Amino acid sequence: MNDAAEKFIANKDKPSFWLLHCLGWMTYVFIFTVDNVFFYRDFNKLGFEVFFPLVLSGIFAALLTWPLRYIYRQCWGLASGWLIAAITLCSLIVSGIWTPVKNLAMWYFYEDFDVLSLIAGNPSEGFRWYMLFMSASYAFFMIFVWSTLYFGINYHFRLINEKKLYIEAVRLSHISQIKMLRYQINPHFLFNTLNAVSTLVLRGSKDKANGMLIRLSTFLRFSLDNDPEKKIRLYEELKALMLYLEIEKTRFDDRLSVKFEIEPEAEALLVPSLLLQPLVENSIKYAIAQMSSGGLIEVTAKCQDGYLKMEVTDNGPSQDNAFLDTSTSDKGQTASGHKGVGVQNIVDRLNVLYPNKHSFNIVRGQIAGYRVQISIPMEYSCTVN
């Protein structure tokens, strides 16, 4: 994960990196100043003046750890073992640079140690070279703590963000189910369906009437039993869609034709429940119902470049309908004034379930009708049938 991951974990509740970065190293200076002045005063010959070399040490550490932020951004997608190895390696490198720098700063103030003589190769008699790196483990520990805090804080707010997205997805799913049920069992839908059944009975087509009632009850049962919080296989979504279309085909007779082009691999992929039905519903309401004959709805699904691409196309008349006055963008946003039943709800659910990883586009046909295009990441079900 790179910039997309950084955008994903970023939210308005997360404190500024620079605020936490500066506060962290200021805390380091404060704690070690207190330690040297009050707890290690027998060994501290500088007194309160130890504050100055510690400030320099904190500034050096802040400057050295700042680039780690950009290095760690590239490590979000690593496995746990590789991530720990990367943190350890970076901590070793930075502590290896910080240790001599902070020690030189401390020794410069401590008993007027001559740093220039050391650099020139003429250290004082009491100097021991191992002293230059004797605090390497301490420096490594401090940088390692900074690194773990960086990931810990970011993972914490990433978890909060994911929880918010999940809660929003559940809320939108419930809203979607309520809207769908309200439309599916509203007086118009039931009246049209039952009126078609009555007509079939009067014509003596009892088998067709019985079949239509069975499909209606099965479709409504699917809507009631389906858990809106869970994704379902595209195969199950298409089964419910076919039930709905068979009911509508009975109503519209030869005015409605349906064509499916579904890749076998796509049928096993997971999709949000009741994703395609509102789009087909709009096509019937605003396109097929306006035609006296020759109505066609095509539903296609295919896998391409790690994405499941779905389309719902109709050949309705070129006029203002549910798909007009809709602006789309690269992120699948639609205008709030969209008139289509359930379409805006679909867009909202996609934004929550697949942030920055989906597309939703509505395209006017070259001759007639409209094409609704949805692209979501491929996701396989863990259930084996």
Results as ranks from 00 to 15, higher is better:
3 D>M: 08
9 I>P: 00
13 D>G: 12
24 G>K: 05
25 W>E: 09
26 M>G: 11
36 N>D: 14
39 F>W: 12
40 Y>D: 06
47 G>M: 07
48 F>I: 12
50 V>M: 09
52 F>E: 03
53 P>C: 11
54 L>E: 05
59 I>G: 05
62 A>N: 02
63 L>G: 03
69 R>Y: 04
69 R>D: 02
69 R>E: 10
70 Y>G: 02
71 I>T: 15
71 I>W: 14
72 Y>R: 01
73 R>F: 15
73 R>T: 07
74 Q>R: 06
74 Q>Y: 14
74 Q>L: 07
74 Q>C: 07
76 W>R: 09
80 S>P: 13
84 I>T: 09
84 I>D: 06
87 I>W: 10
90 C>A: 12
91 S>Y: 03
96 G>D: 04
96 G>Y: 03
102 K>W: 06
110 Y>P: 04
111 E>D: 13
111 E>F: 07
113 F>N: 03
118 L>H: 01
120 A>F: 10
124 S>F: 09
127 F>S: 02
128 R>E: 08
129 W>H: 05
129 W>N: 02
134 M>L: 08
134 M>S: 03
134 M>D: 07
136 A>W: 10
139 A>E: 01
140 F>M: 09
140 F>E: 09
146 W>H: 03
155 Y>F: 05
155 Y>E: 09
157 F>Y: 15
162 E>R: 13
166 Y>I: 04
168 E>T: 15
169 A>G: 06
171 R>G: 14
183 Y>N: 10
186 N>W: 11
193 T>K: 04
198 S>L: 05
201 V>L: 09
210 N>L: 10
229 E>V: 07
230 K>D: 10
232 I>H: 12
239 K>S: 00
243 L>P: 00
243 L>F: 02
243 L>K: 01
245 L>F: 06
247 I>E: 00
249 K>I: 04
252 F>D: 06
253 D>G: 06
254 D>G: 11
254 D>P: 06
259 K>A: 11
259 K>C: 04
259 K>Y: 14
262 I>M: 05
266 A>F: 11
271 V>H: 00
276 L>Q: 00
279 L>Y: 03
280 V>C: 11
281 E>I: 02
288 I>A: 07
295 G>C: 13
295 G>E: 14
305 D>E: 12
312 V>C: 08
312 V>P: 00
314 D>L: 10
318 S>V: 14
319 Q>E: 12
320 D>R: 09
322 A>K: 02
327 S>G: 15
328 T>H: 08
328 T>C: 15
328 T>D: 10
330 D>E: 10
334 T>Y: 14
334 T>W: 13
341 V>F: 08
343 V>S: 03
345 N>L: 15
346 I>C: 12
349 R>F: 01
351 N>C: 07
352 V>L: 10
353 L>Y: 00
354 Y>L: 00
367 I>E: 15
373 Q>S: 13
376 I>Q: 00
376 I>N: 00
378 M>E: 10
379 E>G: 12
383 T>F: 07
